[in-house]
Design a protein around this nucleic acid. Structure first.
Lengths: 335, 335
DNA sequence: CTGAAAGCGCTTACAG
DNA sequence: CTGAAAGCGCTTACAG
């Protein structure tokens, strides 16, 4: 069942059927009605490959994330997909599992697939790949890429300052002075930006950020536990720990418990991301939050505009702010 | 840059370029090498729309889930996408948000998109939509659809019996007799099958499943809390509650806490799904688990085989088993 | 082993 | 308002 069959059955040309399907205003209403009846009756579904080939656009957006199992992403994906669906755009989804080589491969696939735009919501993109992407002239939006900012690409830029300032201030008000940081992998720009925001916040409040109190984790629960173990086994324990994401904070909680420490009595813990599960942990987790829906919305809007605007990719730097959400994992220090 | 440009630059016909790109064995090695060099040099990327139009297949699989925010799904999506990528297949992702009308729309979009196969990992599919799907003759795999089993469609069939038998037996051994059930929405087949497995397990062990002890929730945390509130505000409280999924169990835990009950001392709680967060809640949650990776693997394999096997859709009913994982939310009853 | 040519199913500029 | 026809970029049966 193709457009020609429908044309024959409706007694019109394929051009007219095409116009009806695409809601062209210049078709006589009666003609449109007749065509639509046949389309309905035969359950005709136009072939998207043919349409894409002809028109040059696929109405397909690529969404690439690092790790769908990190609870940060599902909400972002959910919203992105919903916004796309509303515009009749489908979303091809892939994840890189934090592997730069795999990212390379994903991008290749997406370009072959002729997607109209790419939302690259990962940290592990390397400069060479970025350069190649720019060469493609494809609408593109990135997340937290300093290099991208320099190249005039669209970026969603998380402003970590606000949240970290609030977090450190919160702990300081509670009497904490020895504040540790469980960092993310040093090769990830998002991890480094968080560490940076932490350092700055500490300095702003005249607190010393001692090097021994910064330990690197892997953004996962297990890595958080291991990093916290290291911290707690050291001679001079901190009274509070800020973690670069919630999953590591959960690992840190487990570690503290297995060291016989009570939270927040013996040690205060703060996470980052404010995922749903912060309300479910024991104790509930004080966390720095940022709106994933906002990220998704801005990412989609930037791409959608770039697509309609005939490739005039004006630089756009969208800033998303962060905020502390206080729960039960932080309290006055007893030391 | 299209196939004709490459052909001209390499001094061959487009047919030869096409053969080289598709690794046809009947091309002279030197010719292939020359073509490949040009392809490399010019970074030529074949147009997938044109190829799909010509060949009739898109190497695109649709993956439709109810709710990506339910932690049940990310792991399934992750694995499915990974298996697909290995076969050079891309995944178009959508979610229905438990809305049957939206499912209808998603299916329409996927068929228009000419996907080669559809994995429909939702519960809320209605018989009419199912019938229409069968009519499409498209490789299809469903999750827990009794109607599908009857129609000879591919289904991943979760065997709830094992897990629920173990759960009820576990509680019974701990002295529980008044065991309540927080059910999922009654219009979802997966919810009903869980309730059914619970009822059967109770009967097997000669326990009475009283009607007042079955309350309907919505598979979300808030619904779990509300359902548990109802249960705890009733005159005759149960000593243990089994929940149709973990999210509702987390809600139930919150409800119990706000009623001043200690878990498991005052009431035991068991979840279903065994999501990662079961180890993070307070207390950690005893839960019935099933392997999401297994579901994803079987779903993908069924589809992949159906695609290669020239549409000979033999019925396949893949059974996935369930198992109890004991943690700290269950203990001897004190009543 | 290679090429000329047809055709997949659409859309759209052009003509009327 | 409608139609005839070109053409998007591939693949493949056919001929050599």
């Amino acid at each position: 069942m193709n457009i020609e069959d429908i044309a024959r059955l409706a007694g019109v040309s394929t051009a007219t059927v095409s116009r009806v399907i695409n809601n062209s205003p210049k078709v006589r209403p009666e003609t449109a009605k007749r065509v639509n009846r046949i389309v309905e009756e035969r359950q005709y579904i136009p072939n998207t490959s043919a349409r894409s080939l002809r028109v040059g656009r696929t109405r397909l957006f690529a969404l690439i994330v690092s790790d769908i199992k990190n609870p940060f992403f599902p909400e972002l994906i959910d919203r992105f997909e919903e916004l796309a669906a509303r515009q009749g755009i489908d979303v091809v989804f892939t994840h890189t599992n934090y592997d730069p080589a795999r990212l390379e491969h994903c991008l290749q696939r997406m370009v072959e697939r002729n997607v109209d735009a790419i939302a690259l919501m990962t940290s592990e993109i390397d400069p060479a790949a970025l350069k190649r992407l720019i060469g493609m002239k494809m609408p593109l939006v990135l997340l937290n890429q300093p290099a991208a900012v320099a190249s005039g690409l669209n970026t969603i830029w998380v402003d970590y300052t606000g949240g970290f300032d609030q977090a450190v201030d919160h702990l300081r008000t509670l009497g904490h002075r020895e504040i540790a940081f469980l960092a993310g992998p040093s090769q990830m720009s998002s991890a480094m930006r968080r560490l940076d925001a932490f350092d700055k916040a500490m300095r702003k409040l005249k607190l010393k950020s001692r090097e021994q109190l910064v330990v690197e984790g892997d953004f996962h629960i297990d890595g958080g536990r291991a990093a916290m173990d290291k911290l707690l086994d050291s001679p001079r324990r901190p009274t509070a720990v800020i973690c670069a994401n919630d999953l590591m904070a959960f690992g840190a909680i487990q570690s503290a418990h297995s060291h016989g420490l009570a939270i927040p009595r013996d040690i205060s813990i703060i996470g980052f991301d404010n995922i749903d599960m912060c309300t479910m942990s024991n104790p509930t987790l004080t966390s720095i939050g940022l709106s994933r829906q906002e990220i998704a919305t801005r990412a989609f809007d930037v791409l959608h505009k770039a697509c309609s605007a005939n490739r005039t990719l004006k630089e756009s730097r969208q800033i998303v702010s962060t905020n502390l959400v206080v729960r039960n994992s932080t309290s006055k220090t007893t030391r």
